[in-house]
Amino acid sequence: MSLINTGYLEPEELRELQKLPSEERYQKGPVAVIECVQEIPCNPCEAACRFGAIRIGDPITNLPQCSHEKCTGCGVCVSKCPGLAIFVVNKAYSETTATVSFPYEYMPVPEQDMAVTAVNRKGEPVCEAKVVKVLNPAAFDHTPVVTVEIPKEYADDVRSIRRLQEAD
């Protein structure tokens, strides 16, 4: 697995290791993409999902399994995953654009409508992006979930944004 050598997953590996949403499901709207591929003792995502879409069971080292049919793409699990390994991808956002929602625990937190640089799993810039939503309620416990709009073809690659610099 390239992840343990390099720190990032190649999309093909991800598809092998985790059951990713089908293209058909992606076309129906937002859906959770769980990039958790190591059997570590952890299960808050299971309790986080109100729709019972995420299952870990016993033992807690099981990998989470997501029922993409039950998943509504609400994004609550994104803020609850201690590994920051859950994303919500919406490939049906518009004719030409998709959105990717990801946890973002750096200061300053981006604001809606801000122009940002979207990056891939290696931190490389992929494309320009627009922040369309920032959710940061108390229940998320200081893990804001940021949603950016990007050209559709980058929806499987974009997983964060370049860190914003603190104003001096």
């Binding site: 697995m1 992840l3 343990i4 390099t6 720190g7 990032y8 997953l9 990039e35 958790c36 591929v37 190591q38 570590i40 590994g83 920051l84 390994a85 750096y106 990056v119 891939n120 799993r121 290696k122 931190g123 490389e124 997983r159 964060s160 370049r162 860190r163």
Partner: peptide
């Protein structure tokens, strides 16, 4: 944990 590594890779480390 790979998820911790993935977090800092995304941030460009």
């Amino acid at each position: 944990y790979a998820v911790h590594a993935a977090k800092i890779r995304r941030a460009g480390v």
